[in-house]
């Protein structure tokens, strides 16, 4: 109980100090004319506060971080709701009824069914909230997953097997001499496949081929790591350029 109260007191001090520091910095920025107080200026202040609040996690987990994190989750959830509403539900379920009426009865029926069936199928999922009839939601999942599974088969075969097999079998030796690129691709594909082939024990020559496959895999993982570093640093560059470009104008 005492530990809890001491934690609460510590949290309150951290929160108060954080907001005081922000008020002082923003006050200086507005006072010196480096940040204009308006919709945009206030927005930049809020964005900077949230950025610092979330970065505070790098020091240690703290209440400021948790507050920003939870508020962000709430905003993100509502945004997803709004986008789904205005992008799909409104035009494709509600406003779509405007186009249903017509002289041809069959066209009217087919257009109506094109709205009603998917809507009912979607709504059936909400039976999960009533335990007694929750099994009904399986119908929707079965339709979605069944169709997804079906149409994945021909498309994956085309894009990931048929169209990929041909460029793996290029001429390894032409009139111009050995084609090193083609050789590396051929050896790399075969040895990696052998490494993932577990039906045969990796011993002797198969073991050696699998080992070469591992070397290829390591090069690929290394390349991926190099690019991952690049990606993460780029994101940090974005935030640093915001904090020291838009908020505190240190960077031109």
């Amino acid at each position: 109980m005492e530990a809890n109260q001491s934690n609460l007191k510590k949290d309150s001090i951290v929160i108060v100090l954080f907001f005081l520091a922000l008020i002082v910095v923003n006050g200086i920025l507005v006072g010196t004319g480096k940040l204009k107080f308006g919709t945009e200026g206030f927005g930049i202040m809020v964005a900077a506060a949230l950025t610092i609040a979330l970065y505070s996690f790098l020091y240690q987990d703290n209440p400021i971080f948790k507050m920003a994190e939870h508020f962000y989750v709430g905003v993100a959830t509502a945004y997803l709701f709004i986008v789904t509403w205005y992008s799909v539900i409104l035009p494709d379920v509600i406003l779509a009824w405007k186009d249903v009426g017509g002289t041809d009865v069959w066209v009217t029926i087919s257009k109506s069914l094109a709205i009603i069936v998917p809507t009912i199928l979607g709504l059936l999922v909400y039976t999960r909230l009533v335990p007694r009839i929750s099994w009904v939601s399986r119908i929707t999942f079965a339709a979605m997953i069944g169709f997804g599974a079906g149409f994945a088969i021909p498309n994956y075969i085309t894009s990931h097997i048929l169209k990929q097999a041909k460029p793996s079998m290029l001429s390894l030796w032409t009139a111009a001499g050995p084609q090193w690129g083609a050789i590396v691709i051929f050896v790399g594909v075969i040895t990696t496949l052998v490494y993932f082939f577990f039906s045969v024990e990796h011993k002797g020559s198969i073991g050696f081929i699998a080992k070469v496959g591992v070397w290829f895999l390591m090069i690929s993982f290394g390349a991926s790591f190099g690019y991952t570093v690049m990606a993460r640093v780029s994101l940090l560059i974005g935030r640093v350029s915001f904090l020291f470009g838009e908020w505190i104008p240190l960077i031109n």
């Binding site: 927005g43 930049i44 809020v46 964005a47 900077a48 949230l50 950025t51 979330l54 970065y55 996690f57 790098l58 920003a68 994190e69 508020f71 962000y72 905003v75 993100a76 945004y79 993460r232 640093v233 994101l235 940090l236 974005g238 935030r239 915001f242």
Partner: peptide, 16 residues
């Protein structure tokens, strides 16, 4: 722009 974007960008940039 000023709440959702900075939060999401920052969360991912922490990975650096």
């Amino acid at each position: 722009t000023y709440i959702f974007t900075p939060c999401q960008e920052t969360m991912f940039s922490i990975l650096a």
